[in-house]
């Protein structure tokens, strides 16, 4: 969903570049500077390709794993309306995963390789999906916070220099508009409900707020590759800038429905016109992205089971195709 782990693929000590390579890099960077879009067949530095494969595949995996915490509540939605909304939203996430996988494949990596990286735990996905959805209120808060944070990030990525990534983001942003609104509507409904409903939604806000801020990834000072990604216009803004944008958008929305955000240090700075917030627990973040979050194992186990359970469908499709081919040949 967001670029949480820019340090994951540090450049290996690169061999001395030939003058031809230097010239190619210069031309590539001049194109970026002119605001041109880079397409899959264009020459690009190896490092640009690697960074994009890493970012895009993590993003695709996040869409797919992101279906799990919400899918958990489809059968228990409190009304038919909420159930239809949730089904549509989860279906969208599957579609979004497919858009981004297809974009990633244009960089020369196979779909089966990407799926394998997810299922074997080699690939990362957004830390946020390793938290459990304990109550119905979590579903509203995920739409509001998690999709809200994703939209902040994806709006930026819709201007990414790599054409297929940018185009996938434009498509996703168009479809995702309702995700945040349905979440906020659900939260507002609970916030104006019974004392129990209010307590339930406040509890969900308390649990999801900090993990949502972590979605934007490490602080700029601990994000060594941000400068490179920004120079190549894969990203337009740093993690901290995006995080601040999200906080500034969300605080007034919380106040409008009389919910408090669990941060005693939260205060408006009149000079900077930004909401200042307290320190993020980066130790928790590191724990979750390194596999020790509350639901990491459960999420991967669910993905693997879904993949294995679907094997007969893939086999049947192949058998049918073979039969048809044989019939056509006869």
């Amino acid at each position: 969903m967001t670029d949480q782990n820019p340090a994951a693929s540090r450049p290996a000590a690169s061999p001395v570049a030939s003058p031809a390579d230097v010239a190619k890099v210069a031309e590539f960077e001049a194109r970026i500077e002119r605001g041109e879009s880079i397409e899959p067949k264009d020459w690009m530095p190896d490092r640009y390709r690697k960074q994009l494969v890493r970012m895009m595949s993590q993003h695709a995996h996040s869409e797919i794993v992101g279906m799990l915490p919400e899918g958990n509540w489809i059968t228990r939605a409190p009304s038919l309306r909420r159930k239809m909304v949730l089904l549509a939203k989860v279906q969208d996430e599957a579609g979004h995963g497919l858009y981004i996988y297809c974009g990633t494949e244009t960089l020369g990596v196979g779909r089966e390789e990407l799926v394998d990286q997810l299922l074997t735990g080699k690939a990362k996905y957004s830390s946020i999906f390793n938290y459990p959805t304990l109550t119905w209120a979590d579903i509203g808060v995920i739409g509001w916070f998690v999709d809200g944070a994703a939209i902040v990030n994806q709006t930026m990525l819709a201007k990414a220099s790599f054409g297929p990534y940018a185009r996938a983001m434009v498509r996703i942003c168009k479809e995702e508009n309702f995700h945040k609104k349905q979440g906020y509507e659900s939260v507002a409904t609970l916030a104006s409900g019974t004392p129990e409903q209010r307590a339930m939604v406040q509890d969900a806000v308390n649990r999801w707020w900090w993990p949502s801020l972590m979605m934007f990834g490490p602080s700029d000072k601990d994000s060594p590759n941000s400068a490179e990604l920004i120079r190549w216009r894969v990203k337009r803004d740093t993690n901290d800038t995006l995080r601040q944008r999200f906080v500034d958008l969300t605080v007034p929305q919380a106040r409008a429905v009389n919910l408090t955000l669990p941060d005693p240090d939260l205060r408006y700075n009149d000079e900077t016109e930004h909401w200042e917030f307290g320190d993020i627990d980066w130790k928790e973040f590191q724990e979750v992205i390194s596999g020790n979050g509350p639901c990491n194992r459960e999420r991967l186990a669910a993905r693997r089971k879904a993949h294995d359970d679907g094997a007969w469908v893939r086999e049947a499709a192949e058998a049918y195709a073979a039969k048809r081919q044989a019939a056509d040949a006869a």
Partner: peptide, 15 residues
């Protein structure tokens, strides 16, 4: 539309 055929060992048949 893509740069290269996916390399490496096949993990599962890719359609």
């Amino acid at each position: 539309l893509s740069t290269a055929a996916p390399g490496g060992g096949s993990i599962e048949t890719q359609w």
